[in-house]
Design a protein around this nucleic acid. Structure first.
Lengths: 113, 113
DNA sequence: CCCATATTCAACCATTCAGTTGACCATGGT
DNA sequence: ACCATGGTCAACTGAATGGTTGAATATGGG
């Protein structure tokens, strides 16, 4: 029924793809650079990127012969909201997470000057 | 690497399994009752339930000849927290995030006994 | 005991998936 | 024009998935 949630959750179910998303969290990257840390062929990474793009989790734009990959975190929103429907977990965790984030962002701002 | 996230996201990638979780959100149910709304065999639903249980998303307890299925929404927590890391549009220190996650999950294990 | 109910098991099937390899296209530099 | 670089395509493999069916294993009730 809901193909979008299917695609997003399936994309997230693979550890290589989650690692790719983590990489892209730091910066936009070319396909070759995304592939570099992984011990698998470029073609395999290319396929993973296609799956991520299919789920809307990244966008890809070709400039010259280089294809840039960009994280699209908003694509996680529907899945996140779906999961919140089950989130009767204590607000403790999210509070802790928000505190973590607050510290992180402050540190980051300081780091980056 | 992280088999737990793999299992949870893979479990959520199937619409039948998500529908089962939604059913169980309302009430604990026997396997046969879970299967009733679906146009597929009981054995198929039994397999889906096994996958959900394997991911920790439900627990199953046999009383007499009836096996009761109970939602375990806490199992969504790690996945939810992981996703929140991408929901923030500011760059985040991933190493710190991983450490945060590790502590969170350890706390969780202790909480749940 | 006998039968119905609840659930799983086992074997099978078709499809998808994750990976490989080698050939192929496109582009940019010299 | 040539060649290296960036990336995808095509064909193949082995393993996993999602489903089926029919037999098997409890368990409970009359």
């Amino acid at each position: 029924m809901d193909t979008q949630l299917d695609a997003v959750f399936a994309a997230l179910a693979d550890p290589t793809r989650r690692a790719i998303l983590s990489l892209l969290l730091e910066d936009d990257m070319a396909v070759t650079d995304v592939a570099e840390p992984f011990e698998m062929s470029l073609a395999a990474i290319s396929k993973h990127l296609a799956i991520l793009a299919g789920a809307g989790l990244i966008s890809q734009e070709k400039h010259g012969r280089v294809k840039w990959c960009k994280l699209e975190p908003y694509a996680l929103r529907a899945a996140s909201i779906w999961m919140q429907g089950f989130g009767q977990f204590e607000p403790v965790n999210l509070d802790a997470f928000e505190r973590f984030l607050a510290v992180e962002l402050t540190d980051d701002a300081q780091d980056q000057g």
